[in-house]
Design a protein around this nucleic acid. Structure first.
Lengths: 208, 208
DNA sequence: TGTACATCAGTGAACGCGCGTTCACTGATGTAC
DNA sequence: TGTACATCAGTGAACGCGCGTTCACTGATGTAC
């Protein structure tokens, strides 16, 4: 089962990032030592510094990777929701359902979010990294808000609704649900939070 | 403005905990050095080890202090809500309003939650501390759930409602709202999340 | 097709610094008789 | 009221270990001619 040298080499940087992300979510960035990463991946310390100029560079790469993956996965899910249903409200509701189902089937026992981990250690990072994190959150606010506004034009809600807060609520519930799920070791919490959000969206925009 | 020696001594342990909590919320537990705590408080390193047997002991004390303070503050708020209104639904709604108002007026620029910080570094801590954290979350689930069930008996909701998830949602939104507020440096996010939760509770239990 | 050079993906050894922890000791206050 | 002892809240010096970083070097692969 020896991997050919070329194949082995190819993904070293990516494997470092993967191992690092898991470690950071479990122990935090400061306690994630370069030593343990290279041990897991099977290179020497100098090999690490070939791929990353210093530890801050690793943090930046982790953040970028996280933003990209996150965006890709969620975009895929909500686009599928739209494809399955032309109506913006029902497309979004389908997307939320798919999202909850995906979360319920995650293989990881205690999934986490790098944005949350970094935000509770943000003094360790420079402005660039904190800025990337903020942009990631703002991007989701904008995407959800746009959906909600489109929906609100078709289904004007009774009374005033704070669509900005409602857009943020999706992110809030993901972050909060992840924390509760971790602390209580209960992976069912997050999907149920999403389904409750889905109910909120449905009843907000449809008369009963 | 010299403090008398007796007065100065009295609160050393408490001052260590206060400084430590702020540092932990900003940088994480591992990066919070004993050295910086004693510098802030004005004792020597050995003085620290008089108050705490080791760094783990500090973590335990922080967790206990956090649980106690949290419970005291929130219990006070929701009890005031009940006192202002005999009806359980409207008492809870008043309590949520008061809670949102308190959060909006917090002096701290970027408040955080120790439970969240610890959960994203939980491999640093032993079973006892993780257990304390879980018990804290479970206590809030139980308290909110009890309220919601009392309300549901008086105001039976249309359709099925996952009261467990709805109880957790309060904690989720606090945790999530804190994270968004920190990452975006916007202290208005969390109170608005709570007010949206309040709307959800109101419309869930009252016919429109 | 063979040779020269460049790039890629690392190795190996050494470094200094900060951190948590230990240990023997101490001055001020409290308590027993 | 005075003395003996105990406890409280620390001091000061030393320790070893792990960590991030640097530096000179290297073998395998790719490219130019």
């Amino acid at each position: 089962m020896e991997m050919p040298a070329a194949r082995k080499r190819a993904g070293t940087r990516e494997r470092l990032l993967e191992v690092a992300e898991q470690a950071v979510l479990a122990k935090g960035f400061a306690s994630t030592s370069i030593e343990e990463l290279i041990a897991a991946v099977g290179i020497t310390k100098s090999g690490f510094f070939y791929h990353f100029k210093d530890k801050t560079d690793l943090a930046r790469a982790l953040m970028l990777r996280y933003l990209e993956q996150d965006r890709e996965i969620l975009d895929g899910i909500f686009r599928r929701g739209d494809d399955l249903n032309a109506d913006p409200l029902h497309g979004f509701l389908v997307g939320l359902k798919l999202f909850a189902e995906m979360l319920a089937e995650l293989p990881e026992a205690h999934p986490g979010c790098l944005a949350a981990s970094f935000c509770y250690q943000d003094q360790l990072f420079n402005r660039e990294i904190r800025q990337l994190n903020a942009e990631g959150i703002l991007a989701w606010r904008a995407r959800f808000r746009e959906r909600l506004e489109t929906i609100a034009r078709l289904y004007p809600p009774r009374g005033e609704v704070d669509l900005g807060a409602m857009a943020d609520m999706a992110s809030s519930l993901v972050e909060g649900g992840l924390i509760l799920g971790r602390v209580l070791s209960d992976p069912s919490i997050l999907p149920r939070q999403i389904l409750l959000y889905r109910d909120l969206v449905r009843t907000t925009f449809t008369a009963v």
